[in-house]
Amino acid sequence: MEQKDPIEDKFKSAFSGFEQEPPERVWNNVRAQLHPVPVPLSFWGRMMKFSGLLHLHPALFFTISGTAFVSLLTVVYVFAFGHQSIRGHAYAGLSRMSSGNVELFVVADKAMPWDSVTHYRSALIDHFGHFQFARVSQGRYLLRIAPEENSETAKTYAPCWYKGHERSDSADVVLVERKDVVVDVKLMKNGETVKR
């Protein structure tokens, strides 16, 4: 049986209710560990976290996302920058037409001659004689302009091709490359001689 000596009694009684206030930083540290404040991740950190959520190895994730990004850029480029517009004004004599139709035909260079011109799109001429074909792919086109049927203009002017041709095989080609094209088209008077 161990004996308790006066020294031990002294220690025991001294420390039985011994308390000492810890510094406030202890609670701050405890709280920070219990409720950590999420640190905002960098862009790459977020990407890494996202790859983790998808259960993908980061290398595979970045390969796939890089490929997707390049593909997206290509698609955006093709759709946004690979297209131009053809626009202009239609004239009946010296004044602009107030109504009518414009038809756009695409010229397929490598097709057989008799089917090389195919209808592509149509557009209306507004009250100011303006027409527009938006998002036209690069290539060669023909334009045909016609006044509205039974209108006063139709009595005087006949439909024609750009630039004042009766037939498509003699019409001027509108070349669409990397820039928008502005063309003004003039109607031919009925019975007017074919322009050469």
Binding site: F15, F18, E19, Q20, E21, P22, V26, W27, V30, R31
Partner: peptide, 15 residues
């Protein structure tokens, strides 16, 4: 509540 527990025991446990 966590702080309440902390306050209750901190001084004694620091001892």
């Amino acid at each position: 509540a966590e702080y309440q527990i902390y306050r209750r025991f901190a001084a004694k446990m620091f001892g």
